[in-house]
Simulated assay, not measured.
Amino acid sequence: MKKLTIGSIQKCKSARKLVMITAYDAIFARLLSESADILLVGDSLNMSFGGNPDTLSITMDQMIYHTNAVCKGAPNTFVITDMPFGSYIDEVTAFSNAMKVYRETSADAVKIEGGADKAHLVHHLTSNGIAVCGHIGLLPQAVRAEGGYKVKGKTEDEALSLIADAQALEKAGAFILVIEGVKADVATRVAMSVSIPIIGIGAGNGVDGQVLVFSDMLGLYEPFVPKFVKQYMNGAAAVKEAAANYKTEVQNRGFPSDEYIY
């Protein structure tokens, strides 16, 4: 599949649904690249991959390490890297860290969380050659400040605020937005209010594409399954069964058989 560009991604608006999946390593990046238009190296890896309670403690260097792995595994797929918590507190810090991503990886863009309040940062980055994916709605990096993960768009004021956020980020130069944890009808209104693609996660079907964390989609993460996640396989059970079969064959001397001996 031919690698998408920013231009071809934007042409998908109202034309076809974009498929985004998270990836954290070369193995899964290679496997997922056959289906994904875009691979997102999400800071969610701090939870599913690192075992932490939220995304906040992951570092810039860790994000770069995983981004490099994903880019090597899927060199022909558009890759977006999450800017971690604290890495874009002002224009100077944001540009310094975004440049670090560009210099040390082959990522095509970076993603930052926040709405109109972050538009000046998006503008500064895009004005200096950095492609930016915005992220509005439920913001995982604000989980402690907000006291948990809370669905957005429950009131008309919240709906209008989300529309204003999307429009401000588009004006600032963001080429695409992720909208998370938002009432479906409101997410649809947000998508209709801008000319750039809106990728939903827990935001209904009226947007321009979808993103899921790969370990959720594959049923690998057992501790918690969000309401918006559809598991397309029971990966955890498959892995456990394979490991149990391996254990049995090792213990009864079934493996390695002559077929696997030099």
Rank of each mutant, 00 (worst) to 15 (best):
I130E: 03
E34W: 00
V229L: 03
Q141I: 01
F214H: 12
A26R: 06
M1A: 11
I38R: 09
M47A: 09
V19C: 11
G235V: 11
D25R: 13
D258A: 14
M217R: 04
A26D: 11
I58Q: 08
V225K: 13
Y102M: 15
T105A: 11
P140N: 05
S96C: 12
P197A: 07
A94P: 09
I179R: 00
P256V: 08
G134H: 05
M192L: 15
G137N: 08
E222V: 06
S257L: 09
L4R: 04
V178Q: 08
T77G: 04
N252K: 14
T81S: 15
F255L: 13
V143G: 04
A131P: 10
M1K: 09
A236Q: 09
K154H: 14
N52D: 07
D157P: 04
A98C: 14
D258L: 15
A74D: 07
A187F: 04
N52S: 13
I196E: 04
A236Y: 14
N245E: 13
I201L: 10
G129M: 08
H135F: 03
D117V: 14
P223W: 01
F28I: 01
F255R: 15
S215G: 06
G200E: 00
M233S: 15
A107R: 01
V213T: 03
M63I: 13
H66N: 08
Q210S: 15
N97Y: 00
M47I: 13
G202D: 02
K154P: 10
H124Q: 05
Q231T: 11
V207A: 01
S193I: 04
G114T: 02
I201S: 10
E104T: 12
Q231C: 02
N46D: 11
E241P: 01
I199V: 00
A242P: 03
L218Q: 01
Q62H: 09
M47H: 02
L31S: 01
A15M: 11
A29R: 03
N46Y: 00
V41S: 03
A23G: 12
A238S: 15
A29S: 05
M99K: 14
F78G: 02
Y260A: 12
D208F: 08
V92N: 13
R144G: 02
